[in-house]
Write a protein that binds this DNA or RNA. Structure first.
Lengths: 211, 211
DNA sequence: CTAATATTTTATCAATTGGTCAAAAACTGG
DNA sequence: CCAGTTTTTGACCAATTGATAAAATATTAG
């Protein structure tokens, strides 16, 4: 009778471990096939346990997905949140781009999970998109507009600027197969992120910097 | 006994019409849920016919998908193909961006179908990506590099430039839900593509133009 | 109109799906 | 070791899935 915490993720060590095992497996599968395209058998397989055993930890397929999405959204919004209104504008934006690019490199499955969700109309996160995300973007857009009004940045639509940053950075995770194919196998495997970093800094900062 | 053409899409008027009906419905469904996430019932429903009736025209689910993908790839590569080595560099690239943006606006379902396919590892089009697409990109990358060598463009990695163009333009189709949510409902529904056009021309051409 | 053909429907199938249940097995503290 | 609990398993289920067969209907050519 060791029910100290009820709602939280796990009371025993083994529960925490197995739940994490399942989440990792599910992340892989959902990122590759979307929610509807993924099966519990696939996830159970990837998690190296039987389907009923898996369902002992998460009693519904949607619960696993929800857990993953919820966990993702925290880390997803973090980089934009740290954009500092008091910092040097071009530096702040460059740092943001780099952070996003690092996320595409280090968490490609999370990026694809998110992409899948949005592609399919964001059924599970639409309120968060229209709520928390929109609020955050509105706030940061104002910061960027402020910089532009002060003449510290060339002016442009800050929301479309954010779209462009999201699109270009996440592209390296979401369209990974295509990126690899186009770049070919000759180049070192990880050099593409260094090249992308250089290219994107150049693209965004040359256009934004006052000259 | 009117078997003039065997392999081609349809001999009778009604067959051509119904097949087209099915493809349109399937495009909608596949774009929204991916291949594995889509069901024949959904497609049959959207095409307003019974499932067996649908299977009379396309005897397998994969056949429908293959047909859509094949048809898509033609139109998908077309814009890059028309990039003219003898044109004015910045103009050529700007025109390419606009063409891609128009495709995102006018064929969002095709864009999402493609995005879904790549996200899921491009199982059905990997050879074409590694073959035709790579060849085309190699060729055009050389053209762009040529312009840079001649001093007509600021130099940068042409392949990453193409990635950035693809990512930013397709973003407006693939992440439509998010774009709409972030921009809010106040603005006119179609103005976002005009704003995007202005923003992207600015972003890419300011950075590329020699100054 | 009629006969051949093309289309649609009805009924059905086996496989896969998300999910349940109770029993077995493994682990826990005492 | 033992009783109580947690974890795992195997046997199932109803619903959905992609697909088939054959009968019924519509269309078309002569």
């Amino acid at each position: 009778m060791s029910q100290s915490v009820e709602k939280q993720s796990g009371k025993t060590r083994i529960q925490r471990e197995k739940r994490e095992q399942i989440l990792q497996a599910a992340l892989e599968v959902f990122a590759a096939h979307g929610f509807r395209g993924s099966t519990l058998d696939q996830i159970a397989d990837a998690a190296k346990m039987s389907k009923p055993n898996l369902l002992y930890y998460y009693s519904r397929k949607e619960d696993i997905h929800q857990t993953l999405i919820a966990r993702l959204m925290d880390t997803w919004l973090a980089p934009l949140k740290t954009l500092n209104a008091n910092g040097e504008p071009v530096e702040e934006i460059c740092a943001y781009i780099n952070r996003k690019l690092e996320m595409a490199r280090d968490f490609p499955r999370e990026s694809r999970l998110f992409a899948n969700e949005i592609l399919q109309g964001a059924p599970h996160i639409i309120e968060m998109i229209e709520g928390e995300l929109k609020t955050l973007v509105d706030e940061k857009a104002k910061v960027i507009e402020g910089w532009m009004d002060e003449g510290q940045l060339n002016s442009c639509d800050p929301r479309h600027l954010l779209f462009a940053i999201w699109a270009t950075t996440q592209h390296y995770a979401d369209f990974d197969v295509q990126v690899r194919a186009v770049l070919g196998t000759d180049k070192g495997d990880e050099s593409r992120f260094e090249d992308a970093k250089e290219f994107l800094e150049n693209l965004f900062c040359k256009g934004l910097k006052v000259r």
